[in-house]
Simulated assay, not measured.
Amino acid sequence: MSDISEKQVRIGVAGAGVFGRNHANKIKANPRAILVGIFDLSAERAEALASELSTQAFTDLSAILAEVDALVVATPAIAHGGVARAAIDAGKHCLVEKPLAATATDADILCQHAAERGVVLQAGHQERYIFTAMGLFEVAERPKFLQATRVGLPSIRGADVSVTLDLMVHDIDLARILFRSEPVAIKATRLAGEPNNPDAVEAVLTFEGGSEARFLASRAAEERDRRMTIGYSEGEVTIDFIAKSFDDGPNFGLHPDFATRIPDPMGAATADFISAILGERTVAISAADGAAAVRIAEAIDQATRA
C-alpha cells in the first residue's frame, strides 16, 4: 500500500451508472482526493463518464487498482462482493455502496479480508447522516415501534437484487441503530415480483422487549412515498423524507433544519472515507454494520418464501 499520509488520496470509481457518476463527482469536488478514473465492463459507458469528468476510463479492474489508493464500488449490487474483494485483496481501501454485498456470506468475507489486510472498508449507508443531522441518534430512549415506507416507481436500477437489498436495507440499517439490538423474530410477505427477486415486500421485525419495526418497500408503485414514524413513550416522531420535514412529537429538541445541516450526505461520506484512510478518524459507517444489514435483508427475503 502506498504512503498517502502527506498527499491527496488517489481514488477510482467502479461503475459508470447513476451512483458511479454521483460518487465520482463527490471525489472530484473534494480537495483531498484525486479522481484517478472510472472502471466499467462497458468501454462505452466508462469512456462517456470519464470524458465528462476529465479522467481516465478503465475496462480492466486490475489496471485501475494498480493506479489507486482506494476504490468506490458503485457497480450493480450483484457485483459488489467480487469487485470489493478484488480491491481489498490488492490492499486498497473501499467504500461500497449499499448493500455491502448481495449475500451475507460475501459481506462477511469482505469484513474478514479488510480486517486481515488493514484497509478501510466503509459501507454506503449515507442516510445515517440525515438522522445524525436530525439529532435522532442522540435520543437516549429506545423506540417502542417503528414504521417505514419506502416505495418508488418501477425501475430497472437495482433490479439485480431484491427490493429488500435495494431499498429496504436503508431502513433496516437505521432501525438497528435506533433499537440498539438485532431482531429476534422476522415475518415477511412478498407483495409483487418473483419469489427469488421480489419487487415489493412487507416485513415485521421484533426486537428485544417486544418492540416492532414494520417495513414496506416497493419498486412497483404508482408514486413515490418515503415516510417513517418512530414511536416513543412520550409520542411519535414522524418524518417525510420527500418533503424533508418531520414532527418532533415527544419534544426531544430535534433539528427541523436538518436538510440545511447536512445538504450533501454523499459528500460527507466521501470526506469521512478520506479522513479514515488518512488515519484521522475511525470508519464512519462500519463494514460490520453493512454486513448486519445484508444479513437481516437476506433473512427477510427467506421469510417471504417460507
Rank of each mutant, 00 (worst) to 15 (best):
P154S: 12
D171I: 05
F241S: 09
K244R: 15
I172L: 12
D106H: 11
A70W: 13
G124R: 05
F241T: 04
G290H: 04
V18Q: 15
A259L: 03
G249I: 05
A107L: 01
A102Y: 01
D40E: 09
D60V: 10
G82S: 14
V204P: 09
A259C: 00
I242D: 11
H125C: 03
A268H: 11
L61D: 08
E212F: 03
I239Q: 04
L178T: 06
I285M: 08
R305S: 12
G15N: 08
I11P: 10
A188L: 05
D166R: 15
A292T: 02
D199E: 15
G37N: 09
K28I: 00
G135Q: 13
I239A: 11
A46I: 00
F131E: 02
E97D: 15
D247Q: 06
A293W: 03
M168Q: 05
E212Q: 12
I262K: 14
N25Q: 14
G253L: 03
G231A: 11
A46M: 00
E52C: 13
I296W: 02
F131G: 04
D225Y: 10
L205V: 00
L178C: 01
A14P: 08
S62M: 01
G279I: 08
D301R: 06
T206L: 00
L95D: 11
D225S: 12
G12K: 10
S5F: 10
K144R: 12
K7Y: 02
L278A: 13
L153H: 10
F258P: 11
I177P: 02
K187H: 14
N25E: 14
A74P: 05
D225C: 12
A259D: 15
P99C: 01
P154F: 09
